[in-house]
Design a protein around this nucleic acid. Sequence first.
DNA 1: GTCTATAGTGCGATAGAC
DNA 2: GTCTATCGCACTATAGAC
Lengths: 194, 194
Amino acid sequence: MVRWQPGTSGRLQAAALELFASNGYEQTTAAEIAQSVGLTERTFFRHFSDKREVLFHGQELMVDAFLAGLVAAPGEATPMELVAAALESAAELFPDERRGHSRLRQSVIEQNPALQERERHKMSVLAATLGDALRGRGIPEPAATLAAESATTVFGVSFTQWIGAGEQRSMVEIERTVLAELRNLTAARPAAKA
Amino acid sequence: MVRWQPGTSGRLQAAALELFASNGYEQTTAAEIAQSVGLTERTFFRHFSDKREVLFHGQELMVDAFLAGLVAAPGEATPMELVAAALESAAELFPDERRGHSRLRQSVIEQNPALQERERHKMSVLAATLGDALRGRGIPEPAATLAAESATTVFGVSFTQWIGAGEQRSMVEIERTVLAELRNLTAARPAAKA
DNA sequence: GTCTATAGTGCGATAGAC
DNA sequence: GTCTATCGCACTATAGAC
């Protein structure tokens, strides 16, 4: 009998999402998740520093995707062009097939304030990493931080729309629209004519 | 002998900040904080829903300040003008005398990821509340959310600068500069001439 | 105000991979 | 043999229930 199998983290993540979705986050103990895949509570905490983290592993992939967009952009790109490039690159992680999974995961997160906090924290780490990368390309402060935060804001708004009921547009399509809206908003000198 | 004194929450907050700063956040138990002001652990948790919250009570004042700025703005104001008004109003909560206190509090928060998460969450709640208020003024989506998030971003960047070593400028002064930088950043069509 | 479940840690032992 | 994943147990603090 095998004592351990590969993909332990992944199996724990899948089991956790399933249990959280059906029984609720707080009603599901770490021990239950572990037992459901034949492991112990202690092993769960070896893979995930805390219970929430089981829902957020994989966010490093997103950071990498944003950074890949920056790396591929031309050297003379403006900060906002870099933001656009990062967003386009990140959108590849959200193909239409993943909408269902994203919706399920998000519904769990929305049901628990502690999970919302963790999500915000991850976005914040993403923004900080992006800011570092922009500074690394010679963009000064506070432009680098503002651009990085704008990128995550646009991403967040776009993601919310993407998983919205009845939404058909692709992630990249939505991102472009939202980014254009941000440009328009901040550039607007005259008020509305209403 | 008095059984309780007024300002219990305030005394717990002050004691907590002091203990966190000198002994570290994780090394300080809720029971210790309570005992240091002659109360029991149970009483601590009656005032604060969890241990972190003792550092974040008072953030409602900030939400109110942002909203007050919106209310005072003229009806035909553009979203970005409303953002500016909210920021000016919020700056009043950060007079120069408070810089020292803000620096100490922030140094504690920066030492602990859990506290950083809570801080992000509070900013997020602020952004959501601002977004509601903007929608209440007839600003459509996604402009309302983008403007609200931009406001908190500018606030965050400004606050970081405000508590920076050697910083002399007032909060409102910094906010105006950062907001101008955001306008410039997003409006910029041509690239740098370097 | 007491009692309790659960999150999360520390340490030693064990079982396999290499 | 080393290295790492897992287990098992004892333990504290948080946080909620009674």
